[in-house]
Amino acid sequence: MADTILFYIFAAFVLGGGVLTVTRRNSVHSALWLIVSLLGTAGLFLLRQAEFLFAVQIILYIGGVVLLILFVVMLVNLDETARLRQFNKAWWVALACAVVVGIEIWYVLNRGLETLEPGEAPQTAATIEGNTERLADVLFSEYLLPFEIASLLLLVAIVGSVVMAKKRI
């Protein structure tokens, strides 16, 4: 019962925040609504017993990515942009494409729902070790190489963004 109410609260966070992120004129407002949406997602992770991802979502997304976006919004002068037209001329094409994709997803979901029904995975709640230990166990044994490659990717991204943003190298 509490789960159901919490799910709908977080869903309202996610969808309302998402819609307002996309529609706000001011970029700072967009970024703040993005925080609301990401917080809702973090709550949904908690409802699905992904505690580590909940923490990662808040620390990395809200603390890192949104902060970065806000920095750039402050750095780049967006005042004139806020006064201009906010949507493409071809926005109705985009909307039609999105509606088609939505119908497609809805169709696929409806077809697959019966196989999805048994749902509740039995062992998640009653495991001996916590979510973080299990994640670390799998990440550092089975996924060790992808983990190292991800660190390489982050290094490349850091160097790349510095090179991009620097005036003269």
Partner: peptide, 17 residues
């Protein structure tokens, strides 16, 4: 949420958004 994001990517002009 995916659809909202898609609409945002396709229709907005502001690159930050």
């Amino acid at each position: 949420l995916l659809l909202i994001g898609t609409i945002g990517v396709l229709t907005r002009r502001n690159m930050v958004v």
